[in-house]
Amino acid sequence: MIDFSLTDDIGALEAELLRFASNQLRDRARGFEAGGGWDAATLKTFRAFGVAGVDAPESWGGVDLGALAKVVALEAISRGDAGGIVAADTAGPATAAALVCPDQTLAARVVTAALAGENRAALVLADQADEAWMPGSTAPAWTWTSHSGGLRLLDTAGCAATLADAGALHASGGVAVDLSGAETVAEWTLDPETVALLRGRARLWPAAVLLGVATASLDYGMAYARERVVMGIPVAHHQGNAFAIAEAAGMIEAARASVRAAAVRIDQAMSWAGVWATLAYLDAVDAALHATDLGVQLLGGHGYVEDHPAEKWFREARALTQLLGGRQSAIADAAEYVLDLPDPLLA
């Protein structure tokens, strides 16, 4: 029967990572942003948790706890710092491509190297892309590209990488990678459901990070709004703000339920789980954009300046929603199948 509880393993991992985020990331996030990434000690602690490979098979160097563990872990960490996790997770959303790759030997090689820290794998969700944003300061050794008919693996080790001059996610070391000269290592045709699974599972990665950012922003905004008095009562007690807080909390809770449900459905190999993951991603995008906007708004002018983290979450949420093709790409993918998509509970 329906059961939303986490296993003890995943629950314990979440608790550990929330502590890590609170004690080692949150108050240092500004420093990470200025420095272009997490420091070596923080990265070492992060790697010890095994988050990068939590959804990869043990034979690849992973932990094999599945997609649910991954989204739970990413959300917990992102409450502390979303910028750094984008680069620190060396496997990242690319694991979704490796898991469906027909050549599992090659896929294992790519993921194992990424989890060992030897190089990095990236994923691009576009039929044709001459340039792509990627974390990590340099071009990755391997880049998967997913298109409507299948999957391609590129050798991108020698590709030019230019520091992306964006106003957010500085701690990711984001670069624009020129893919025009990349050599195709292999190419596979995939059936539509597998393509949807790949793309949806990959999108759960930014979805989970967005949930962490949204939650951090709303929690901070609520704490401020409970203390700050305006016109004789706390900011949070003005009905316009109280209602907005309730709305944002509802959107986050609903998006979290969607993202976790999509991950569970992937773990249980439910048919068309990938499309539900893409739909869940859209829920997370909407919730994060709404909550981080409110997070600034609740602080008024204080939300706009760097004395408070609200502006950082605002910038990060918008930037994160652009990864992996962004919102429009997700809508287009989901629209392909939405008319005949079976009900996930009743079908």
């Binding site: 029967m1 509880s5 296993t7 003890d8 649910l68 569970v264 459905r265 773990d267």
Partner: peptide, 12 residues
């Protein structure tokens, strides 16, 4: 100790 995965399926 809970080791059974979360599930979103209905019972019979």
């Amino acid at each position: 100790m809970k080791t059974i995965e979360s599930t979103l399926e209905l019972d019979q």
